[in-house]
């Protein structure tokens, strides 16, 4: 059942990604990208990443979509036909994709409990975090404590983006007569 859902969600994601590429109405593109986010969130739930799913839904599908819609009120809604041949782009993408597929060949199988990432580092989080940190949600333990420094950085990134947007758009027109 889970596997079927997994395939279904991933297939829908492919469809929406291709549609994003295909469509020229930016409003539709933005809505589709929101849908793409939501589908990703669904997939994350299937893959046991509830925290990530929650965030993806709130941020990717929520905030990002709102911002894009806000942008669309200020820019044309229709993408123009591009003249540029995209053969170069196609080559780059094909090469990158081929490299990635090559990279997958020696990967541990999906869900394999003996994969290196499940055998190293993480076991301590699962076994010792109740005693060391004392929280049931291991994601929170790792996020806020073991790797709390990453999260400080992440907070700083958001801070940077916010004041960056202020620097770029803040008061721009509104203040001037």
């Amino acid at each position: 059942m889970i596997e079927l859902l997994d395939i279904a969600v991933l297939s829908m994601m492919v469809v929406s990604a291709v549609a994003v590429l295909w469509l020229r109405n930016l409003f539709a593109v933005v809505m589709l990208s929101g849908a793409y986010s939501l589908l990703a969130a669904t997939l994350y739930v299937l893959l046991d990443a509830v925290d990530v799913a929650f965030t993806e839904a709130a941020v990717g599908a929520g905030i990002a979509t709102v911002l894009m819609l806000g942008t669309l009120t200020m820019v044309p809604r229709q993408e123009k036909e591009t003249r540029r041949g995209s053969l170069g782009g196609l080559l780059v993408v094909a090469a990158t994709g081929a490299l990635l597929v090559y990279g997958t060949l020696d990967m541990p199988e999906f869900g394999d409990p003996d994969a290196p990432i499940h055998r190293h580092v993480v076991p301590r989080y699962m076994q010792d975090s109740p005693a060391e940190v004392g929280l049931p949600n291991v994601v929170t333990s790792v996020l806020a404590s073991y790797r709390g420094y990453d999260t400080l950085g992440e907070t700083t990134v958001i801070f940077t983006a916010a004041i960056g947007v202020m620097a770029l758009l803040g008061w721009g027109r509104r203040r001037k007569p």
């Binding site: 905030i63 709102v66 958001i158």
Partner: peptide, 20 residues
Amino acid sequence: NVFAAMATIFFVFASRDPSA
């Protein structure tokens, strides 16, 4: 931080005059 930052980003975008 996230609350204030997100609100700020939204407010700044929304305050922009579309015809500017």
